[in-house]
Design a protein around this nucleic acid. Structure first.
Lengths: 244, 244
DNA sequence: GCAAAAGTGTTCTCAATACACCCATGA
DNA sequence: TCATGGGTGTATTGAGAACACTTTTGC
């Protein structure tokens, strides 16, 4: 097995940068996107390990926690101005961060003292973000070889307790969909009713009657109807809408 | 002005116990109770200062965060087995914990080094708890002279950002009332429909039709009707109910 | 003309609302 | 017998579900 190189200098710098951040605290971002009628999350694959993980990070000592989350999001997606919401804190004693970190360092042949800050207990603040899939430019970090979208229906093996975190994020998203109308953050600025319909069906995991869905959405008074969109398909051209 | 004494030994011990806890992390508990048709929260009044605050605490290095919250609740109420839910994290850079701590120590003539752990930045995890008012036995802590119920409609001046925390807790409670049926945790094991009705009206802040409310509750199938309760009042005796 | 998908109309159902009425209780 | 609050009956309303139908588009 050949190993992927990691940037040793960057890695060592990271291992020694514990005093920049609030200790014992981390944050994990569940970044949702919608593409090809599938709900996806942006994940990182560790170099030389068959584990994926959520984009995450730490909070600078003089940084708002929300600003820290936005910073992490910007680093992984290239985007600013992202819809973002805190949804839960994961503070179990047995989150098993330490053993994963050991694996990551070992496989990459990095030495770290036993009292390295990364082996501490971490209480993690969970954020979920909704982005326009087409605008994202995924960027791996030092310890990951890939940063890519993964379908929620087909998640790989995840490190830490990140499966649980994604599950909880999804539940929060579902609950907020009707109540706070957050779904539009997953679409481009203009979209067809059919696209919105598919989005709702996918997130909620249940079929919704096309015609009733349309009436419901229109009755909310939050959509502005624009020109028609001619796709070349042999059917009536749908209107484009934008969110008011 | 005469000062209330504080237990110097306990206070000093507390000032030096920073290494027991996860640094930069705290938790605040919004404990709701219902009494005399009013929604109340349990607050502490600082000794020799005109500020009140939420019961709070820190997380031991080898303690689950939820266990820590239950420990704080037990210390202030004498109760175990409390309904408890995490609702938000407060991590603003400018929470201004430090200046309040200075005031508290100064007025009580306690010396603390400038690098004392209490002057750190704190990210605080907010929990709300619902308790049976009649079962609570409020216990002040070292730095407080009073631990008592305060009506939400009549809050005193609060330390830190505790007003904001209470507000957010109330919003969460309102949203959870119908969805998760958590309200019963605020009542004794048996109660009349009228009591439940008043509870809902008080929490939601809106009048609810008595008869429709009754039908709605009964139709949920979560109440068990028990014997009648004869109060001595000149009217039909209401049934007692208990939550299934 | 035809298939495919978009858009709208109409009925039905059920729960929430609003109103009315009867019942038990103690003074 | 009366006032008071508890409990139930019933008509009305409105939102959502289920059905049908018309319209537009490219082949």
């Amino acid at each position: 097995m050949t190993l992927m190189d990691i940037d040793i200098e960057k890695a060592l710098h990271y291992l020694q940068s514990g005093d920049k951040y609030l200790p014992n605290l981390s944050l994990d971002c569940v970044i949702f996107g919608f593409h090809h009628n599938q709900l996806k999350v942006l994940l990182l694959k560790f170099k030389n390990l068959d584990f994926w993980a959520l984009p995450g990070g730490h909070i600078l000592k003089d940084e708002d926690i929300e600003v820290a989350a936005l910073r992490v999001l910007a680093e992984r997606t290239g985007l600013t101005n992202i819809f973002l919401e805190q949804f839960s804190v994961f503070g179990n004693l047995h989150r098993e961060v330490k053993s994963f970190m050991h694996k990551v360092l070992e496989i990459n042949q990095l030495q770290a003292p036993l009292d390295c800050w990364l082996f501490q207990r971490f209480v993690s603040i969970g954020y979920y973000a909704l982005v326009d899939f087409s605008k994202v430019n995924p960027q791996p970090d030092t310890f990951s070889e890939v940063c890519d979208w993964v379908s929620l229906a087909d998640l790989p093996e995840l490190a830490f307790d990140h499966s649980e975190i994604i599950q909880k994020a999804l539940e929060t998203l579902r609950a907020s969909l009707d109540k706070k109308l957050v779904g539009f953050n997953l679409l481009p600025t203009t979209f067809t009713m059919s696209e919105l319909h598919k989005l709702y069906e996918t997130i909620l995991g249940t079929p919704l009657r096309r015609n009733n869905f349309q009436r419901k959405m229109l009755s909310l008074g939050i959509l502005e109807r624009l020109e028609k969109k001619f796709t070349g398909a042999a059917n009536k051209a749908p209107y484009l809408y934008k969110f008011k």
